[in-house]
């Protein structure tokens, strides 16, 4: 496990050219991730960056880290497997709102309750872009899309409240309308010792609403610091997070001031405690009847 203060954002940018539509919010997100990773200073080969399926899930390939563009909704289990195999790695996980809160929604609560030192970044654009504009789990109720021709009936999920309720130790939100803020919040999330979550309001330029574009965010966004929120105040975080969809708060909703031990630390402890000198080829001895 090493850090290198000389690493700069560019060291994390791969030669692969993004396929995202020009104007996509994810261009800003990947820039912010380069910045955050340079700030943390771990060399790219010590970083594993996992994603699912969706436009935003292409993101690991645009970094020089080890990437894993897996299957729809399953980035978190794979990321946890990586952390389990090698806790020294910096493990990042990313995907869209469909990946994280529809098809893969069941995994989030369990990742949180294990509390591995993994950072989960959701690029939340309230739409399915890769498949051309269908309703997503965070689409506002009544939204007309190709799969909700006359307007949807469903209420959107609130990712921020989900994560807070599950017990996540770090919950934040960002937007490409504030690049510096986004980069610093991602860096802070990575540095948090435990499971951290950043919801990024990353607009879809092709299927998103006008009011959801970066330009609109500039006038909508409100930093949590500016409204006097203390990130150690979990109940306060719940209240502010409940305005997801109405207010665009940026910054840290909640950071556990006394982070509990991580899953990785706990299983390392178990391994150390139970380590045996008995070689693997003696494993069958226990079955011998005498």
């Amino acid at each position: 496990m090493t850090t290198n203060p000389l690493l700069v954002a560019k060291d994390f940018k791969s030669d692969l050219k993004p396929i995202w539509c020009p104007g996509c919010g994810d261009f800003g997100v990947v820039q912010a991730i380069y910045r955050a990773l340079a700030g943390v200073g771990r060399p790219p080969h010590e970083i594993a960056f996992v994603s699912g399926i969706g436009c935003s899930s292409r993101i690991p390939g645009y970094t020089t880290a080890y990437g894993f563009n897996s299957v729809h909704g399953r980035s978190l289990p794979i990321a946890q497997g990586i952390k389990m195999a090698n806790p020294d790695l910096l493990v990042l996980c990313a995907g869209g709102d469909g990946d994280g809160f529809s098809i893969g929604g069941g995994h989030v609560a369990h990742a949180v309750r294990r509390n591995p030192d993994i950072t989960y970044i959701v690029m939340d654009n309230q739409i399915y872009g890769l498949t051309k504009g269908q309703l997503s789990p965070t689409s506002p109720c009544g939204l007309k899309t190709v799969t909700s021709t006359y307007g949807s009936f469903e209420q959107p999920v609130n990712p921020l409240l989900y994560l807070l309720s599950y017990g996540a130790g770090f919950v934040a939100q960002a937007t490409p309308a504030d690049m510096a803020g986004m980069a610093s919040v991602i860096e802070e999330a990575i540095r948090y010792p435990g499971f951290s979550f950043v919801n990024i309001q990353s607009p879809c330029v092709t299927y998103g609403q006008e009011t959801q574009q970066v330009k609109a965010h500039r006038s909508q966004m409100k930093s949590l610091a500016s409204v006097g929120h203390d990130p150690a105040n979990r109940m306060g975080a719940f209240e502010l997070a409940s305005h997801y969809g109405e207010e665009l708060y940026t910054g840290v909703f909640y950071r556990n001031p006394t982070p509990p031990p991580t899953y990785d630390a706990l299983f390392r402890g178990r391994q150390a405690e139970l380590a045996t000198k008995v070689p693997r080829d003696r494993i069958l001895d226990m079955f011998v009847q005498r």
């Binding site: 954002a9 539509c21 104007g23 970066v214």
Partner: peptide
């Protein structure tokens, strides 16, 4: 260093559009 600045003279990413 570069990490002190963001988008000073650089156009914003969301300025680009396909077929502009």
């Amino acid at each position: 260093t570069r990490d002190m600045i963001f988008d000073i003279e650089a156009p914003e990413y969301d300025e680009a559009r396909a077929f502009m």
